[in-house]
Amino acid sequence: MSLPQAAVLHHLARSGGTVITRCVAAASSAVLLSEIHPLMGHWHDPRTQVGQGFPLDENERSLGPRSPANAHCGMVADIVAIANACAQRGAALLLRDWNHIDFVPNFMVSQPSYRLTLVDVLKPHLALHQVVSVRHPLDQWLSTIVMAKAERTDLDRFLMGCRKFAETATAMGFVRYEDFVADPEAWTQEICRRLGLPCEAGFLERAGQLTNVTRDTTGIRGAAQVTVLSRRPHSPQLLAHMRANADYQATVEMLGYAP
């Protein structure tokens, strides 16, 4: 018996993942579970995201509300149940992986695994179709510090995480955010193709109206629009620091960015 299918989008934080997810979800009309991670089921619980109109098996619901203590229990079963329900309904399932915490130290996970944890736990149960998207690490960092997350993140460890993620991306193939925003229609179609998802016309209009994409960018540059953004102002010292960092150099080289 073949495994149920699921499409997975991987990206680090502040790398345009929300915009890409909006477009792909709108184009494919897939059932979206956004920012999913086995350790963080109490934050973005699949059961909650899937909503009342998409009831899970009662056995799964009987587990009760998720908390930090039990966040790592039962999420796989939930996602598999949702995937099976999607298959029965002829719907596609799209997972947006919250893999940032697998690669960049943060207030939730101080020692990243440098592996796609969600894939590790789902692979035995689902046939996964994955797409990785990336962004220039300098822009990513500049956006990160605007979001006030940098106070919890050491730049060098951030860059090490970028390198590890770039290695993963290189091994799997990747889409660059900068290329995506330059031609979102073409890249959305390409991403849907790689994910095995349908791609319906007119998705750009619908993308801005979706309400189920976590970490909505409203209030941040670009908001819900697909926009080419200029680089944020930054100090020469920051760029010099990055350029002197071996992880940064390796990352931009792997991803084909200008240093």
Binding site: P38, L39, H72, C73, G74, M75, V76, S113, R115, T117, D120, V121, K123, P124
Partner: peptide, 11 residues
């Protein structure tokens, strides 16, 4: 011990 993370420990 039930945990979704078991495959991660076995990596």
């Amino acid at each position: 011990l039930e945990s979704d993370l078991r495959p991660c420990f076995a990596s």
